[in-house]
Each structure stands twice: as structure tokens, then as C-alpha cells.
């Protein structure tokens, strides 16, 4: 048994193991229960896909795949940072087990779409602009 044969078998075994971990992580994405859990699992999915790309690079011998893996890692990092900002700005509208969001979604789907009123532009109340406030301070 030469070293190349061992390498080939171990690459196949690594493919199988990565497939199992990919499916386990997808299960966490589906089950949730909250949004940050899903974001963590998506970050993990990016890492596993980078592993797949590295295995394909070893099998085919194209080392250009490394650059693809690095750029995928950059995209995954930026996506996670953006999701963190989103969670921070969205606030705690979700219960600990995510029931509130489900109820919200059902209510939003069941509600009739309101007609936009003609000329319903938001107006600033009179006397609250910055100039008025500046005068009041004097």
C-alpha cells in the first residue's frame, strides 16, 4: 500500500465525514430555534464548504482553488458581521424559543394589505425643528 493510495482513501473518508457534518449543521439551521443560532450555523456551513473546496483542490491538483476558498471565507465573515449588526438593530422582538416571531409572521400573513392614502406624507410637527429649538434655548 503506497502513500498515494492512503492519501486517496483518506480524502474519500474526509469527504464522507464532511458530508455528515454538513448535514448536521443544516439540521441546526432548520431547527433554530432563534435567529442567532441560525447565523452561527450558517457561519459554520461556510467553514465546511471551504473544507470541501480544499479537498477538491487536493484531488484535482488545481491550487487556484485556494484563492476561491479565501474569498469565500471573506464573504462568510462579512455576512456574519452584517447579521450581527442586523440582530443588534432589530432588537429583542423574539421570545426565547422564537414563538413570538412565528405568531408575528402568521399575523402579518393573515392581515389585509392596507391601501396607501393619497398624499399621506409624513409631516414634521410645527415648532419642533432645529431652528425653533435653538431659539427656545436663547
Amino acid at each position: 500500500m503506497t502513500a498515494q493510495v492512503i492519501l486517496s482513501y483518506s480524502i474519500w473518508l474526509a469527504f464522507v465525514v464532511l458530508c455528515i457534518s454538513f448535514l448536521l449543521t443544516v439540521w441546526r439551521v432548520i431547527r433554530g430555534p432563534t435567529l442567532p443560532d441560525r447565523v452561527v450555523a450558517l457561519d459554520m456551513l461556510t467553514g465546511i464548504v471551504i473544507g470541501f473546496i480544499a479537498l477538491i483542490a487536493i484531488r484535482t491538483g488545481f491550487t487556484l482553488y485556494i484563492d476561491i476558498a479565501i474569498s469565500l471565507g471573506l464573504v462568510g465573515f462579512l455576512a456574519t458581521v452584517a447579521f450581527a449588526r442586523f440582530i443588534l438593530s432589530r432588537g429583542g422582538r423574539e421570545g426565547p424559543q422564537g414563538e413570538t416571531v412565528k405568531a408575528d409572521m402568521i399575523r402579518a400573513l393573515a392581515a389585509p394589505v392596507p391601501e396607501p392614502r393619497r398624499g399621506a406624507r409624513k409631516k414634521t410637527a410645527a415648532g419642533t425643528g432645529p431652528a425653533v429649538r435653538r431659539k427656545a434655548k436663547k
Binding site: 492512503i6 483518506s10 480524502i11 474526509a14 457534518s21 448536521l24 441546526r28 487536493i58
Partner: peptide
């Protein structure tokens, strides 16, 4: 040297996949 590199690659590949599996099990 080639065979040593191949064995080293096989070890790295297997341990990397094992770490990914451990992470996925931990996630669940």
C-alpha cells in the same frame, strides 16, 4: 519525500475533517 508529504497530507485532511465533525456535533 513524496510519500512523506502524502502521509502528512492524509493526516492533515483526516484531522481537519474530524474537527469539522466535532464542531457539527457540538453545534447540535
Amino acid at each position: 519525500t513524496d510519500s512523506i508529504l502524502a502521509i502528512l497530507t492524509a493526516l492533515l485532511v483526516l484531522s481537519g475533517a474530524g474537527f469539522a465533525l466535532v464542531a457539527a456535533i457540538g453545534l447540535n
